[in-house]
Write a protein that binds this DNA or RNA. Structure first.
Length: 431
DNA sequence: TCTGGGGTCCTAGGACCC
DNA sequence: TCTGGGGTCCTAGGACCC
């Protein structure tokens, strides 16, 4: 049996955990660059903020005046996710992180009442990690996900939904729209609706060849999972990464090559850091840049893919990325975004060709990269930056309302007054 | 002025092979 | 008149996820 636990309005609740003033208020966390709404509290949803609403449009709406808008703080959310994971590991034999706010629980062989266990898990995560959650239970991952969705939809429910028995499923399935199912996106829902298939019950009753014909093998898997046949096993070790990317919109449009060069150098450095953290090397990369696709500016969009000598060395990757960017740079446009994606990733021992004639001394390179990563880990990202001389860039992303990194920066730690403790779980802030 | 970022998997079609 | 069968590998694009 699987469980799926999922943080309610996860990013918003991470903010609330450290700032009591946000509790009970309509709160929205914005995407990078303060672009659009990506996490909303119940209060904000009730006021009509939708997922993906562009901030600059929605902030003008008078009924949304009371909403508090926060820039996203991934250092905080990532660390809160880790805390949630640790609490869960104490309570069930195995936990498989699925996303920053969702984790599958292996409930096989758990001897007691699963709903009771789920209740205890929710309470522990709430108390220790400060995150409210919902839990879904089912014999497959897809059913656990669906149960979780049902639990989340119940306004004053228990926060738990159990789909472990066929009876529980057939009672609910006729009322659940197909789009609620994990793996059923807009395109599939639309295709099936043409044949009158709208609810999960309709879909489950569909013959296999029909499913295969309209949705190919992925649809077939979802279909099987909904009938209780597991196709996605529980897996402990995270699969090795296929791609590592760093792509960003600029805080303002940029028009100069030097700015673009700096951006590309910054992004590729960041990606190389991730690459080393995963112990991988890249043997190809894609670099892209484009102008704003929403406004009436003259449009330009280009992308190049280059093969490189397998590397995780920042300097090597910078060279390749800069050349690629230069080859597609056209002066006279207002660029809005650029990015780099590292592809064809290898574990060094699996590399098809050993770098016998490597143009860089591998021992030296390894030592320099280790030093670079250590300095940046200790003193903050970008303390040592290859390929950029001088002042801070002005094109970086907008993050107008960023919360402190309460849990990952010493300078940002909350301070607690000494003296008699008050009977409250709220941190006592020193102004 | 201002519309995110980072992933995975699958398929179709072309090039190529024997 | 008639032009096989069975593969692999690569890429671009679609669909989906959070």
């Amino acid at each position: 049996m699987f469980g799926l636990i999922d943080g309610n309005s996860f990013y918003c609740e991470c903010e609330r955990a450290f700032d009591p003033k946000l509790r009970g208020k309509p709160l929205v966390v914005l995407s990078n660059n303060d672009g659009c709404a990506i996490s909303r509290t119940r209060e904000a949803k009730d006021l009509g903020v939708r997922m993906g609403d562009p901030y600059h449009l929605v902030a003008k709406r008078p009924e949304l005046k009371p909403v508090i808008w926060k820039s996203s703080n991934y250092a905080l959310y990532g660390d809160m996710s880790r805390r949630m994971y640790e609490v869960l590991c104490e309570m069930v034999p195995q936990v498989e992180p699925y996303s920053i706010d969702e984790m599958f629980l292996d409930l096989r062989g758990m001897p007691w009442d699963l709903v009771k266990l789920a209740t205890e898990i929710r309470a522990a995560v709430r108390q220790i990690a400060k995150i409210p959650t919902c839990v879904g239970i089912g014999p497959t991952k897809t059913l656990a996900k669906l149960a979780n969705k049902v639990a989340k939809g119940e306004r004053h429910g228990s926060g738990i939904c159990d789909f472990s028995t066929p009876e529980a499923r057939s009672a609910k399935f006729p009322q659940i729209p197909l789009g609620d199912v994990w793996g059923m996106g807009g395109a599939s829902v639309e295709k099936l609706a043409k044949g009158g298939i709208r609810s999960v019950a309709d879909f489950v009753a569909l013959p296999l060849d029909e499913v295969r014909k309209t949705l190919t093998v992925t649809g077939l898997r979802t279909h099987a999972e909904l009938r209780g046949l597991s196709c996605y096993p529980f897996s402990l070790n995270a699969p090795t990464r296929q791609t590592i990317a760093c792509t960003r919109s600029f805080g303002r449009m940029i028009t100069e090559w030097e700015e673009m060069r700096q951006a590309v150098v910054t992004y590729v450095s960041r990606a190389a850091e991730k690459l080393r953290r995963h112990g991988l090397r890249a043997s190809a990369m894609q670099v892209f840049m484009h102008t704003n696709l929403f406004n009436k500016d003259p449009r330009y969009s280009n992308q190049v893919t280059v093969a490189i000598e397998p590397a995780s060395d920042t300097f090597a990757l910078i060279g390749a990325a800069t050349r690629a960017a230069q080859s597609m740079w056209r002066k006279g446009y207002r660029y809005q975004k650029a990015g780099i994606v590292l592809i064809d990733l290898y574990q060094p021992q699996d590399m098809p060709v050993q770098d016998m004639f490597a143009s860089r001394d591998p021992v030296k390179s390894k030592a320099i990269m280790a030093a670079l990563d250590a300095v940046n880990a200790r003193f903050g990202r970008g303390t040592l930056q290859a390929g950029i001389i001088g002042k801070t860039a002005t094109w970086g992303m907008r993050r107008a309302n960023l919360s402190p990194c309460y849990t990952t920066r010493l300078d940002d730690l909350l301070q607690v007054n000494s003296g008699p403790l008050r009977s409250t779980d709220e941190p006592h802030l020193i102004p």
